[in-house]
Amino acid sequence: MLEARDLAIGYGVRPIGTGLSVAVKPGEILCLLGPNGCGKTTLFRTLLGLLPSHGGTVLLNGRPITAMTRAAIARAVAYVPQAHAPPFPFEAVEVVLMGRTARLGAFSQPGKADRAAAHDAMRRLGIHDLAHRDYSRLSGGQRQLVLIARALAQEAALIVMDEPTASLDFGNQAQVLAQVADLARDASAEGHGVILSTHDPDQAFALDARVLLMCRGGVYAEGPAPEVLTDANLSTVYGLPVTVETTSSGRRVCLPSLSQSAPTMTSNAFTMA
């Protein structure tokens, strides 16, 4: 559904990342990991066609994204930004309804079918009780779920999520992750393809995702989580000793060293940011 080969990305004249190849299939979760400043957000904006690429092409269902209208792109890819505070007090269901925009004429308003789709999306995420609440007064976790509902209402096969669990509390993080896993592995329908960025490598294990580990604007490693997220890879990319351990329930977790004597604390992660 999405394929990008040998992408060069960046703002202005100088690319900040090169040689990036990304591919996602339906039912697949691709987890983007890497230290601050490695180019995750820039890559996202390029994949969504919000930023022109410096080289290489992004193909959506086989068509180059540069040849598509914004509406056509929006019907193929939905974007879930980090939960934000909007300037105006829209009702949550109105925010979800905005996901229908790409299916409306330029001068039309959402109709009955669009409202039904918006309510269905909220019901599917178990947040229908929020429908008529003021979105700007919801908690961060609730807002994130509303934005995911908006992506569902958009009915795009691919969903791109920018750090969906950032700034959420422990419980909300788990809830949002569970919904992400559900989107990809929906048994009743063709699963969505999901690309998400995160700062927590544990999430890639929890989601059983494919991982794209980025470092300094390039791909450091790519593949299934257990193959990519190794002690050695994580230690190199994040610049401090990390060990991956398996819990008694069989789940893998990544444990960074918190020892202050770690000599590599000044490397990559901080100098790049």
């Binding site: 919000l50 914004r70 929006a74 019907r75 829209f90 109105e94 905005m98 996901g99 925009t101 790409a102």
Partner: peptide, 16 residues
């Protein structure tokens, strides 16, 4: 309405 979400989001939702 959609434009009041900001440029990136409006464009990702299909608005030029």
């Amino acid at each position: 309405n959609v434009l009041s979400l900001g440029d990136d989001e409006a464009r990702a939702l299909g608005v030029e």
